[in-house]
């Protein structure tokens, strides 16, 4: 984050980026790196709470996750994973370019990383828009639409896979009549258009499907906010690179933004299988 960047104010002539309370540029760089790693640890822990919520609900209600995850598009998720992996490569190249004082390569690689981040958010937007349209949202807003079948369910059907069978008996603790109404029926529309044979029970017995979408939107939403913050930081880095601030003598901001970007990528590497690739 911008908050842990070393100051660029001038203190002494020999090393213009050295702050007065450090004795050497090496000490300053080591301090910034340690600070950044500590900050990244707090980021992991911030997501840790949500991963914990995921683990609790998945362990207590596996049927919700098996039932609901087919409504996410595996192909879009896979494309986004690929995009972020490529962006990690371009980011690493940008850091290398800065260390080698290759200014033009640095600018190109930063621009490519930004393009990948924007592409990721664009695809995320398409996915969110589809979920919004289908009413496959979190708790209070969960209102699955009957007429429009989720594309991933189509996809599964067209490839001859069996859509997930609803569990024949829900766990006793979920089978309570006072639970909020929209959650009781679960998403419908698993049928292909024109097909009259019900593949699954029209009233699936999976309760509280909105929990899956609550976890999905919380995790991916928080991640998207982090991607957005990363893009702002990358833009700032690119601007400074264009001004020629970075060279082998001073590349701390590029390296720190790079570390942050890698962690944001890493979190997605866990989100993709946990949310999209269940079973």
């Amino acid at each position: 984050m911008s908050t842990s960047r070393p100051a660029d104010s001038s203190a002494g002539a020999p090393a213009p980026h050295l702050q007065h309370h450090f004795t050497s540029p090496a000490q300053q760089f080591e301090s910034v790196v340690l600070g950044m790693w500590l900050f990244l640890a707090t980021e992991i822990l911030l997501f840790g709470g949500l991963f914990c919520a995921y683990a609790v609900y998945r362990a207590n209600h596996p049927e919700i996750f098996e039932y609901a995850h087919v409504y996410l598009s595996k192909s879009l998720g896979a494309v986004n994973t690929a995009i972020l992996l490529v962006s990690s490569f371009t980011m690493a190249s940008a850091v290398w370019a800065a260390q080698q004082s290759r200014a033009r390569l640095l600018r190109i690689m930063l621009a490519l990383t930004i393009a990948c981040g924007l592409g990721f958010l664009g695809i995320k937007y398409v996915e969110y828009k589809h979920k919004w349209h289908e009413g496959l949202l979190w708790g209070k807003l969960y209102r699955p639409q009957h007429e429009a079948a989720p594309f991933s369910a189509h996809h599964a059907f067209e490839h001859g896979q069996t859509p997930p069978a609803a569990p024949t008996s829900a766990p006793g603790d979920t089978d309570v009549s006072w639970v909020f109404t929209p959650g009781d029926t679960g998403p419908r529309g698993l049928l292909a258009p024109g097909d009259t044979t019900p593949l699954v029970s029209p009233e699936p017995k999976v309760h509280n499907v909105q929990l899956f979408f609550g976890v999905y939107f919380a995790l991916t939403g928080l991640h998207a906010v982090h991607v957005l913050a990363g893009l702002v930081l990358l833009g700032w880095t690119l601007w400074r690179a264009a001004l020629g601030h970075f060279s082998a003598a001073y590349f701390t901001p590029v390296a720190m933004v790079g570390l942050y970007w890698h962690v944001v990528d890493l979190i997605w590497i866990y989100l993709f299988p946990l949310l999209y690739l269940i079973h």
């Binding site: 209070k140 969960y142 609550g214 939107f217």
Partner: peptide
């Protein structure tokens, strides 16, 4: 927004 993760009325778990 009524996320539902902690709210028992929406299937969530207040003890969590």
């Amino acid at each position: 927004l009524g996320l539902g993760i902690f709210q028992p009325g929406l299937g969530g778990d207040p003890v969590l």
